[in-house]
């Protein structure tokens, strides 16, 4: 009755969120006194055995070409078969785009209870209770799973990756892969940028920037920090920035280590998209901006003066570090 962790990859590379889920799954296995194993679908360019350093003993690798693109129906069939063959009792996903497409389907196929968006390890002292974020991060719910098999999708950036020195056995499984019904015709990557949901640091701009022509100071700071850029809803609604940068309750929810908000007042809908960030820095010329109440650090000042100075200091710090 092992723990099985789904490893998510794109273009043959394992996503950062999967390293967190590997550690999470290894921790769950330790807690239950069982082994942690992982499942990788599609062809890979990685040295799979080294994934043992995240605390897993075995990786099942199904290197089938037709698994290189996500068809939720096909993935579900394959993952559910793998869970049965591996005799797993807990199945772990990242609550990322792939996890959101697949975890609920897999749970349903296995008649397993699902906690989607977990933010802590399960409490197994009395049953199996998992804490998850609700109300867009404004609260938590402790959810009890009553089924024999349990499925958890873990919020990205909520569990610290631990690296040890184990080596995993790489095994295959005898699984028939159904023909996909979904045909991928194009993948459009936002060129060279750091994906917002995977970023450790996010620099975000609001209406205080006054116009799209002023975004250079946001981009410069983001570059200096190796950060992704984001914006508030009014900014994307005015087409100053693309919609996929809109962070908030009805946009993208992020949980970076550091979120720097520039010229954003901090409406409750915006906070709902960022309140899982570890550290929040607010730069705003209005000392009454509600965002300061949700911030760890703040600067009351004009973004057009503060940001270039901050970018210079970051560059100095990086050069010295």
């Amino acid at each position: 009755m092992s723990v099985l962790i789904f490893i998510d990859q794109a273009d043959g590379h394992i996503k950062k969120s999967s390293f967190e889920t590997l550690t999470y799954g290894a921790d769950v296995a330790k807690q239950l006194g069982t082994t942690a194993e992982a499942l990788l679908l599609g062809t890979s360019t990685e040295d799979i055995a080294t994934l043992g350093k995240y605390g897993i003993s075995k990786v099942y690798h199904i290197a089938n070409d037709s698994l290189n693109n996500l068809d939720a129906q096909v993935y579900t069939q394959v993952i559910a078969d793998a869970v049965t063959q591996a005799n797993a009792s807990v199945v772990i996903f990242s609550h990322n785009q792939t996890g959101k497409a697949v975890a609920a389907r897999v749970a349903t196929k296995l008649k397993a209870g699902l906690v989607a968006g977990a933010c802590a390890l399960p409490d197994t002292s009395n049953g199996f209770v998992v804490k998850k974020t609700v109300f867009s991060g404004k609260a938590f719910a402790n959810v009890s799973i009553s089924s024999a098999v349990k499925v958890i999708s873990v919020n990205p950036n909520s569990h610290t990756t631990i690296i040890g020195d184990g080596v995993a056995e790489v095994a295959s499984l005898n699984i028939t892969v159904p023909t996909p019904k979904v045909k991928v015709i194009a993948v459009n990557k936002t060129s060279g940028d750091i994906p917002l949901t995977e970023a450790d640091i996010v620099v975000s701009g609001g209406r205080g920037l006054k116009g799209p022509e002023n975004w250079g100071i946001i981009i410069d700071l983001a570059k200096a920090l190796g950060a992704a850029t984001a914006c508030s809803r009014p900014v994307s609604d005015s087409d100053w920035r693309p919609h996929h940068e809109h962070v908030g309750q009805t946009g993208i929810q992020v949980a970076p280590n550091l979120y720097i908000a520039v010229g954003i007042s901090g409406a409750i809908q915006h906070l709902a998209g960022v309140n899982r960030s570890k550290i929040i820095v607010v730069i705003n010329k209005d000392p009454e901006a509600p965002f300061f109440k949700a911030a760890d650090y703040g600067i009351v000042g004009d973004a057009f003066e503060v940001l270039p100075k901050l970018t210079e200091e970051i560059k100095k710090f990086k050069a010295g570090a």
């Binding site: 785009q97 979904v182 993948v187 917002l196 995977e198």
Partner: peptide, 8 residues
């Protein structure tokens, strides 16, 4: 998808 869009 992470860092982009997929058309299917």
């Amino acid at each position: 998808i992470e860092g982009g869009e997929e058309v299917s």
